[in-house]
Design a protein around this nucleic acid. Sequence first.
DNA 1: TGCGCGCATTGATCTGAGTCAAACGGGGCG
DNA 2: CGCCCCGTTTGACTCAGATCAATGCGCGCA
Lengths: 251, 251
Amino acid sequence: MTTVPPGTKAEPCARIERGQGCGVERCGLCEARAVSICNAIEEDQLSELARATTVVELAPGEVFRNEGASPEYLFNIISGSVKLFKLLADGRRAVIGFLTVGDFIGFGRPDAVPCSAEALTNVRLCRFERGKFRVLLETYPKLERRLLAVASDEVAAGQEHMTLLGRLTADERVARFLLARAEASQRLGGSSKDLELPMTRSDIADYLGLTIETVSRVFTRLRRKGLIDYKTARSVTLQDRPGLLAISEGG
Amino acid sequence: MTTVPPGTKAEPCARIERGQGCGVERCGLCEARAVSICNAIEEDQLSELARATTVVELAPGEVFRNEGASPEYLFNIISGSVKLFKLLADGRRAVIGFLTVGDFIGFGRPDAVPCSAEALTNVRLCRFERGKFRVLLETYPKLERRLLAVASDEVAAGQEHMTLLGRLTADERVARFLLARAEASQRLGGSSKDLELPMTRSDIADYLGLTIETVSRVFTRLRRKGLIDYKTARSVTLQDRPGLLAISEGG
DNA sequence: TGCGCGCATTGATCTGAGTCAAACGGGGCG
DNA sequence: CGCCCCGTTTGACTCAGATCAATGCGCGCA
């Protein structure tokens, strides 16, 4: 999440580590366990969980899931950041969301992956083969319940974002984006003031339904008003939360 | 779905029918069963299902679920159409979706309803008390699996809509809307050419992130080009599907 | 049959955000 | 060390869709 290495562009198949240590330890020691769906599985059954998974490592820029393809794998993010996106025929792009530690990738209709996924930073993923994942769901009702809760949350989050895209001004969108980022950072034990943005202005624009230029202008406007500050484009400090909140609500 | 009665404005508590016929028949004969999550429950267990539900009837305009409230009830639509929406502090509105026969209402975070729900036509709902619904989920793993599949679909549908809101032009949005409506109508055994739109232009505008005027203008433009036709605003005929498809894809 | 009320349409004008274009600047590489 | 590349910023201008403002019209009702 700090520096962004070379940028080997999207080898379809990524470096994979198998069977390092035997199962129990791997899942038991997983840095993402506390915040991922796996915490629905008891300590003493972690080895079975581990047997169903493979750890995958990706470099920034690598696309590991393609819109429209058959969903062979599901993932949990162990570390790093990922973006989900959709492309239109003419090249327009919509970024659907940004994911991090603990987030699950795998919802959608059973026949086609709903959107592509790309690593923003170095990423470590926990990969489930689809069939095995289904077996896990059948074996562990708690896991299924957990997943339903997560999907249900995601539905609500999606509705929130639709509202943003359908009805908010550029300033409101950017303010909400920054506040949401701060909250996410805080949830993972980070600062709620100093943000590291793993994505480019272009990613933000495609996420907020704006252009790069507009995003850039709003950022500078917010800086000039003293609501935020930054030295580099990717590390922003929120100087005035209440002010941002007011803007995000149409103030 | 044909004519729109008086419009008794939102009595908070709607007419409720209880225990008409005993359980088995009610759910066994339900017109929505084939297309709702209830088809995950076996014939011989329908009486238990029926015992957990209450049938509710609503008139157009009645709001039966409020954004932000605690989610006491979950619903299945037996007949009629419903819109989900969110309001901003200053009155701006986003319509999140339109639902019909068989659709489930109840996803979202466990603490707060994500968006309000209003009847567009006369509506008949099957209402589950939240606690009882949870028990049902625990009792019938198939039901839970079904619900997860539905939630997962909804996530994908939401992502599609975000793309529309973030990146499509007004013409593209309206064309996609009409095609999606046609598909939905077809799925329920209706025509895929002649559409009855249970919502107003204002609802459509808030759904597509546009204004009433723009929606109206696009409709007339599509009509002038011979792609659609209509005598009244609410019953549209799709004259040229391929043409609409082309527009919806940025042609 | 005629009236009134909401929704819908249409037109004229405005504007927030997009487009086009240029310059800046930081990080990696030769 | 300095150059190059790519992401970012900034500025000038444009435009799709919003806003403001009538007018139209179908439907329920008296």
